[in-house]
Amino acid sequence: MSKTRRSPSLGLIVLAGGLSTRMGRDKAGLPWHDTDLLTDQLLRSQAYPFSERIIAINRPYTPHELPAKLGRTVHLVADSYPGCGPLGGLEAALHSGTSEFYLVLSVDLPFYNFAPVPDLVKLLRHQPDLLAVIPRTENKQDQPLAALYSRQLLPAVADHLQKGEYRLRRLYQAVPAAYVDESFRPALYLNINTPEAYEAAKGRDANSCRQVPVVTLTAPDSGDGKTTAATAAIAELTRRGYQVAYIKSTHHIVTRQKIGSDTDRAQKAGAVSVCLCGPADVPEGLSKEDYILALSQQQLADLVLVESRSHGPFPRIDVTQADTGTLVDDILFLTGYRSSAI
């Protein structure tokens, strides 16, 4: 008979002390859901009854936007080993904490919803010797910054830091650890390290609130290849089984669709519906961008591609800057149909 134990006390550690060198600004303070990334993550953490919440951060942070009850569970710590990456933040948090185990999260996980936590804790009950539980996503990729760690690891963490070994992988690979398959929901583990990734995450998030997701293909000038990119994307998306609607924003007065026109090309590429939107189509008092978005939500399709130089809804892809080889996958990410890394 396998031995079990009671559920250990579980705290939350948010690692927010990184230098954010690739982002070029503090990731914890990035605007997200009418607040910032760190505060939003703490608000989301209410999905699980953590015994405490420790923020490893090396600069001032005042959790004034948190409900009072949640705020009382939060306290801040600064690295004792500055400049040592996530392991330095982990050491400071484990040193100050009192829980038996911690869910350790990087601050730049905007889509993490805490749904995996109960199953991770269940493993601890059935395998009492574990000191770490590591999720794995696509291609068996470890997610050590969304994992459970025992406070018993504090001496080992300090030893690694003193020896100059800062890789978290070296820590958990040397102790009893379990690996949990999370390949069915990899979007939870998407992190944002660059301005481009941040914009992509915002676009995906915007589409999650829409009945029909939308992506605008744009370019600075006429003749830069918007229609060519759109029709190629429609053809490939259709081949993959998606129903795509196409909206063309134009500055011309719309009369009727012509053979060989952009809408005709889109229809021949497989679009299930095509629309032209000219200045005369926009109701008084409504911006063209808002009208196109409203029009997109009336389409009976899996997703809508908008072609526009300046009036398309967010998110937008500039086809002159995009990688044509990944354009379709980028569209599927922004519409929520694909969870590949940003």
Rank of each mutant, 00 (worst) to 15 (best):
A177D: 04
A174K: 04
R185Y: 07
S183P: 01
L190N: 13
V180N: 05
P176K: 06
P176Y: 03
A174T: 09
P195F: 12
P186C: 07
L171K: 00
S183L: 05
V175Y: 04
E199T: 00
L171A: 00
Y179N: 03
A200Q: 08
A177K: 03
A177I: 02
V175M: 05
A177R: 05
L171C: 00
P186E: 01
V180G: 12
Y179Q: 04
A174M: 01
N193H: 14
Y179K: 03
Y189C: 13
D181G: 10
N193M: 11
D181P: 11
Y179P: 05
I192F: 10
A174Y: 03
L188Y: 08
F184V: 11
A200N: 04
N191I: 08
S183E: 09
I192A: 15
P186A: 06
A177F: 07
I192W: 11
Y172D: 03
P176N: 01
L171T: 00
V175C: 00
Y179A: 12
A174H: 10
V175H: 01
V180P: 06
Y198V: 08
P195H: 06
L188F: 05
Y198C: 04
A178Y: 02
R185F: 09
Q173S: 15
V180Q: 09
F184H: 15
T194E: 03
A200H: 04
L171P: 00
D181I: 12
A197D: 07
S183D: 07
A187S: 15
Y172G: 00
N193L: 14
Y189G: 14
E199C: 02
L188R: 07
V180T: 14
L188N: 03
E182W: 08
A197K: 04
L171N: 01
A177C: 13
L188I: 06
L188S: 08
A197V: 04
E196G: 10
A174W: 06
S183F: 04
A187T: 13
E196I: 10
A177Q: 02
P195Q: 12
N193V: 09
A187E: 15
E196P: 03
L188V: 08
P195E: 09
P195W: 08
L190E: 14
S183C: 02
R185P: 06
D181T: 14
N191Q: 12
A200W: 08
Y172C: 01
A178Q: 06
Q173L: 14
P176S: 02
V180D: 03
A200G: 09
L190S: 15
I192K: 15
F184W: 13
N191V: 09
L190T: 12
D181H: 12
A197E: 11
I192N: 05
E182M: 14
N191D: 13
P195V: 11
L190P: 12
D181Q: 11
E199H: 00
P195R: 09
A174N: 05
S183M: 03
A200R: 09
T194M: 11
F184N: 14
E199P: 00
A178N: 02
A178W: 02
N191A: 14
P186Q: 04
L190W: 13
I192D: 09
D181S: 11
D181A: 12
A177N: 07
Y189E: 09
S183N: 05
E182H: 11
Q173K: 15
